[in-house]
């Protein structure tokens, strides 16, 4: 800091004390205060309230066990978790290909095209995005017309209201998150390492497995956790593309509030989803290790 002071020409008003480029702890705390208040009021308090509501009144324990014993919510919970796991794998796999190509390609137009492809889902409203897919997958929609035109199928496939439609819809929405998260990890992979490995005789697969994989492993795990987390909270896509045949927990919670007027039950469902999400993320982050997290944040 002292060097800054010495190179400054001492003309005009001279500061009495040497200044520091970063704010002090008190200023920092004061500046962060509105944010902290907002987080306590609108994040921490409602989260605690969920558990309080779920445990209010007569039978708190039964409310939690009901989530697992009631066939509707048990099935919804299983669907939410398995579909979200599928979404995480599909999205991270696709995102990895896009992010890696963005990192390695020398062609400008490929980069522009890929960034556009990856970010377009960001620019569309949730309803628009889902409606587009809804129309695309319709029994008399373009995808079925194409399949029938090519002679792949004789009668229209039922594509809507299936697991496929839900995973497709959510993955499309979450692709930008995967690309951005993975890109930030991939850019840190020095490309000269790859050519060095090649020079020393490693094949493409060997380079990926022994050079790239260890470097990006943590980042990929974090991306998986992020996508999984975002996915389990989806409401619009499962109800629009999956219907009541493949409901997510969000659908069931909505029904508990608006059809059954069962607020404590809804809170219990939400609480269990929250706990599961927390456990999954904590596990993945522990696997990824603190170093990766610090590098990504």
């Amino acid at each position: 800091m002292a060097t800054v002071e010495t190179v400054r020409p001492a003309k005009g008003r001279v500061r009495a004390r040497p200044w520091r480029p970063e704010a002090g702890p008190v200023t920092g705390l004061l500046l962060a205060a509105p944010m902290l208040v907002a987080i306590v009021l609108f994040v921490a308090f409602p989260l605690v309230q969920v558990f309080v509501d779920a445990s209010s009144g007569g039978v708190p324990v039964q409310r939690y066990t009901d989530v697992f014993t009631n066939p509707v919510s048990r099935r919804a919970l299983a669907t939410t978790l398995t579909d979200s796991a599928l979404v995480a794998v599909v999205t991270v796999a696709l995102g990895a290909v896009i992010a890696w190509t963005l990192h390695t390609t020398a062609r400008r137009w490929v980069r522009v095209l890929l960034w556009t492809t990856a970010l377009v889902p960001f620019w569309m409203g949730m309803i628009i995005k889902n409606y587009a897919i809804y129309l695309l997958l319709a029994a008399n929609g373009p995808l079925n017309a194409l399949l029938m035109g090519l002679g792949v199928v004789d009668s229209p496939l039922s594509l809507l209201y299936t697991k496929f439609a839900v995973v497709y819809g959510i993955s499309y929405s979450l692709l930008p998150y995967a690309v951005l998260a993975l890109y930030s990890v991939f850019v840190q992979v020095d490309r000269s390492l790859l050519s060095s490995a090649a020079v020393l005789g490693a094949g493409r697969a060997q380079v990926l497995a022994t050079v790239v994989a260890p470097l990006v492993r943590g980042g990929v795990l974090v991306a998986l956790a992020l996508i999984f987390l975002l996915s389990i909270g989806f409401y619009v896509t499962p109800i629009m593309l999956g219907g009541l045949q493949t409901p997510f927990m969000a659908t069931v919670i909505n029904q508990q509030v608006f059809s059954l007027y069962d607020f404590p039950g809804a809170a219990a469902s939400a609480a269990i989803l929250l706990v599961i999400a927390f456990v999954v993320v904590a596990t993945i982050l522990a696997l990824a290790g603190g170093k990766t997290l610090r590098r990504m944040l």
Binding site: W19, T27, L31, P34, V37
Partner: peptide, 25 residues
């Protein structure tokens, strides 16, 4: 230049935080 920036950043941060709080409210 440096002095301007040191006052500008906390101001911008404060404005951003307040906006968030206001929109959340």
């Amino acid at each position: 230049m440096s002095t301007t920036r040191t006052t500008l950043i906390p101001c911008a941060a404060a404005v951003a935080a307040l906006t968030l709080l206001a929109s959340a409210c």
